[in-house]
């Protein structure tokens, strides 16, 4: 119990430090970090609304794209930030209280909190601008967020471990995750794709997270492809590899 409290204190300290380190010293920095992704999504939505006024589903184009893009951004942010976690926080490890895994937890907590804010602001302002909808099943939106967080944490942890062993991994990972936005149902309705395409896309866990969000936002989304157990199973499997990898490669990392 005492250890748990200690751990919570360490994590809180690390989160505060990460906040300062990534967003600068001013509180405007953090605000900026929240506003920029919201604005980039807004811009993207604006461009797409010029091209195609008809949302693939529902009444709001903004909501449809945002559920996709914000989920992917959240996932990418987690997996990419965690990837550099070990190398960026090397100096911190000189404090014996801090273990490498703590930096992973701290970054995950911070990014998740940031994205909660981003989503609240984005969907909130959409709603007040009369261009959005209230989520029909709020509990599913929370689940979707948690699932995305779990997936991002799992893949980010594995990324961090691989990157610490294999220095070209960040570049390779970048190449591998680039097509993610196209295969995650951001711009189209996955349920309307030919079954052959659905069967392929099914293997992308991020797509399930996007669909999960939409199931939460739209009462009658009825995704033909969504399966909540799949992304969770993938996350848990990868997380197991990531955590075990972190533990067993720790010694080889600490001598570098």
């Amino acid at each position: 119990m005492k250890t748990l409290l200690l751990h919570i204190r360490i994590l809180a300290t690390l989160v505060l430090r990460e906040t300062r380190a990534s967003f600068g010293t001013s509180s405007v920095g953090y605000l900026w970090a929240i506003v920029t992704p919201a604005m980039s999504v807004g811009l993207l939505v604006f461009i797409f609304s010029l091209v195609d006024r008809q949302p693939p589903f529902g009444t709001s184009l903004a909501v449809f794209f945002a559920t996709g893009i914000l989920t992917i951004e959240f996932f990418n942010k987690l997996s990419n930030t965690l990837l550099t976690s070990f190398s960026a926080n090397r100096a911190l490890l000189n404090y014996p209280l801090i273990k490498e895994a703590d930096t992973l937890y701290a970054r995950t907590l911070l990014i998740s909190a940031t994205y909660v804010m981003i989503m609240l602001i984005f969907f909130g302002s959409l709603f007040f601008a009369d261009a959005g909808v209230m989520p029909q099943n709020p509990h599913m939106v929370f689940q979707a967020f948690a699932a995305t967080m779990l997936l991002g944490f799992a893949i980010g942890t594995l990324n961090a471990v691989i990157a610490s062993l294999w220095h070209s991994w960040p570049q390779i990972e970048k190449v591998l995750t680039r097509p993610l936005i196209f295969v995650s149902g951001v711009f189209y309705l996955p349920s309307r794709l030919p079954t052959e395409a659905q069967n392929v896309l099914y293997w992308n866990p991020v797509l399930h997270c996007v669909e999960w969000f939409r199931e939460g936002f739209y009462g009658n989304y009825n995704s033909a492809i969504f399966d909540p157990y799949y992304p969770i199973a993938v996350s848990l499997g990868i997380l197991l590899f990531g955590l075990a990898g972190e533990r067993f490669t720790r010694k080889s990392r600490s001598m570098a």
């Binding site: 273990k99 197991l240 955590l243």
Partner: peptide
């Protein structure tokens, strides 16, 4: 997973 998570706490 829970054991590994527990260990990362116990490492402290």
């Amino acid at each position: 997973i829970s054991t590994l998570l527990f260990f990362t706490i116990r490492d402290h």
